[in-house]
C-alpha cells in the first residue's frame, strides 16, 4: 500500500499515465432519470463516452444494465468508477476490461445502394462477414451484422467503397466470461 519511493508522488513527464479504453458494466434501478444521472455525471465532470447501451435486463426487479465504453488515464478511470458508485440508484459498477476477459458484441444495420459489380461484391463481402440481408430491392441491401466492434468497423469501411448509404449501430453490449454474474 505504501509508496516505495517516499521522495515524491509525482511522476515525471516521461512517466505520465497513458489513456486506456475500458468497458464498464453498470447495474441500476430502472427508474426515471437514471440514465440522465449517468450521462450528466460524464458530461459534468468532463469524462468521455465512446459507446453507451442501456435497457432493462431484469423486469421483475426493474433493473437495467448500462454498458459504457470510456477512455481515460487509470486515475480518471478510477474516479469514474467511484463517481458512478456514488449515485443512489446504482447497484454495482464493474470494470470488465480491468477485471478479466469479457465478451463485447455490437449489432449494426448497414444500408448499401448500388448496381452491377459493386452490388455483387457487397453481397459477397456480407457472406464473408456473416452479415444477414434483412431488406433489399434491386438497388439496395440492408445488412444486419453482429460481432466485435472491430469487425463491424472493418465491414463498414469496406462498404464505404461499395455504396454505403447509412449505418445504425446499437453500441456495445458486454458481459464477463465464466459462470459468475457481475
Amino acid at each position: 500500500m505504501i509508496n516505495p519511493n517516499p521522495q515524491t508522488h509525482y511522476a515525471g513527464p516521461s512517466l505520465r499515465q497513458d489513456v486506456e479504453t475500458r468497458t464498464l458494466s453498470v447495474l441500476v434501478d430502472n427508474e426515471p432519470g437514471v440514465l440522465a444521472r449517468v450521462i450528466g455525471l460524464f458530461s459534468g465532470r468532463g469524462y468521455n463516452i465512446d459507446s453507451l447501451t442501456v435497457t432493462e435486463t431484469e423486469h421483475e426487479k426493474h433493473l437495467s444494465r448500462i454498458t459504457i465504453i470510456t477512455r481515460g488515464t487509470p486515475a480518471v478511470l478510477e474516479q469514474i468508477k467511484h463517481q458512478l458508485e456514488r449515485l443512489v440508484p446504482i447497484h454495482r459498477v464493474r470494470d470488465l476490461t480491468f477485471e478479466g476477459v469479457s465478451l463485447e458484441r455490437e449489432l449494426a444495420l448497414v444500408k448499401v445502394a448500388g448496381k452491377g459489380e459493386k452490388r455483387i461484391e457487397a453481397l459477397r463481402m456480407a457472406e464473408i462477414f456473416r452479415a444477414q440481408v434483412v431488406d433489399t430491392s434491386i438497388e439496395h441491401f440492408v445488412f444486419e451484422i453482429t460481432g466485435k466492434p472491430g469487425k463491424i468497423e472493418t465491414f463498414i469501411n469496406l462498404m464505404t467503397e461499395l455504396g454505403l448509404v447509412e449505418v445504425s449501430r446499437t453500441g456495445i453490449a458486454a458481459i464477463g466470461r465464466g459462470a459468475a454474474a457481475m
Binding site: M1, I2, N3, R86
Partner: peptide
C-alpha cells in the same frame, strides 16, 4: 507536499486520489 507519505481518511471513496495521489 512533495516529500510526504499521505494517509487520507474519507467517507467518500471518490475523494481518494481525486486531486492528490495518496499512499494510504
Amino acid at each position: 507536499s512533495p516529500g510526504s507519505r499521505k494517509i487520507h481518511v474519507d467517507i467518500d471513496p471518490s475523494s481518494i486520489n481525486k486531486n492528490i495521489q495518496v499512499d494510504l
